[in-house]
């Protein structure tokens, strides 16, 4: 996990991704409380409104939910939803890119499968 915020993408998206990572990796278990927008703001030195926007993005997606007067919590079943979503992103981000690069280098699909096996063994 990196603390550095990348200034070439909207920060609220990055905050949402950080929370998603924490949920997927179990640092934020389901039904546990998520830090407040002010805590996010202080921790990452970002604007609280931006932090709130990131949290609200996940509320809209049903990953987090609000308990009135207490704060934000991770919804039950959120992890499974996120893992599915990430698998889809994985395909787009890594597999498709990999295929493109392989094509440039003239690596065949069979050779690629072989490489993945080797990677697994490492």
């Amino acid at each position: 996990m990196t603390l550095i915020i990348d200034d070439s993408r909207p920060i609220f998206v990055q905050i949402a991704e950080r929370i998603e990572d924490d949920i997927i990796q179990g640092r934020l278990p389901e039904e546990s409380q998520v830090p407040s927008k002010n805590e996010f703001a202080s921790f990452y030195q970002i604007n609280p409104a931006t932090a709130a926007k990131g949290v609200n993005l996940l509320v809209d997606e049903g990953i987090l939910y609000k308990k009135r007067g207490i704060g934000m919590f991770v919804a039950t079943g959120a992890r499974a939803v996120l893992v599915e979503k990430r698998k889809e992103q994985f395909f787009e981000q890594y597999v498709v890119t990999m295929m493109r690069e392989a094509e440039k280098l003239g690596i065949s699909a069979d050779q690629l499968t072989e490489m993945i096996r080797r990677g697994e063994a490492k």
């Binding site: 200034d7 970002i46 609280p48 931006t50």
Partner: peptide, 24 residues
């Protein structure tokens, strides 16, 4: 950021050190 979170107000930061403040 800490104080602004607790006491919101209008703040203007004028600077040429953009990379340092842009997150705020």
């Amino acid at each position: 950021i800490e104080d602004y979170s607790e006491n919101p107000r209008t703040i203007v930061l004028s600077t040429h050190l953009i990379d340092e403040v842009s997150r705020l």
